[in-house]
Design a protein around this nucleic acid. Sequence first.
DNA 1: CCCTGATTCGC
DNA 2: GCGAATCAGG
Length: 177
Amino acid sequence: MEPGHWSSEQSDALRDYFFKGLSYAEIGRQINARFGTAYTRNAVVGRAKRLGLGLSRPERMISPSIVPSLPGASAPLTPPRAAPPCLNLPPPSALKPANPVKLRCVGVQPRLIALDELEPGDCRYPYGGDKEGEEINFCGHPRQAGSSYCTPHARLTCGPGAARTAAAVALRLVSAA
DNA sequence: CCCTGATTCGC
DNA sequence: GCGAATCAGG
């Protein structure tokens, strides 16, 4: 895939991901993973803005700016998501305090390759298998050289004190090509 | 420190 | 038009 020109597929994917609410970085990773491209989040952002997506967004993370809150009378509209009561509050007690391997990788679309279908070079990040006896599938995205995981999962796995050298990053680009 | 989005600037 | 560099906030 020759960079420099966004295909309709990629633009569509970009729109889709963006509309879905994914962040630019996640969109970039997704598109990169799906199309084998190497778009950075900047590229995604720039493309999105030029594409006109920058204007279409009900509300983003823009919080501090113009708050038309007038003192006195200001409640013309009721809160959109006015959930009746707050009864179903899942206190920590009911929830599992231990969240050992809860995936934070939002936006990563695992192919959920079974073990026997898993090919060498596929990311071995486990999906499922939370319960004993359940089948464990794997991410299946192109894994990075020297790692058993793809880029997003490698980031997740190597949180503290993991060997993340600049060479690995460089290799990533090479292997991705 | 990490992340995020948004803009600017050079190609 | 494209993307990296850069800025600015969380």
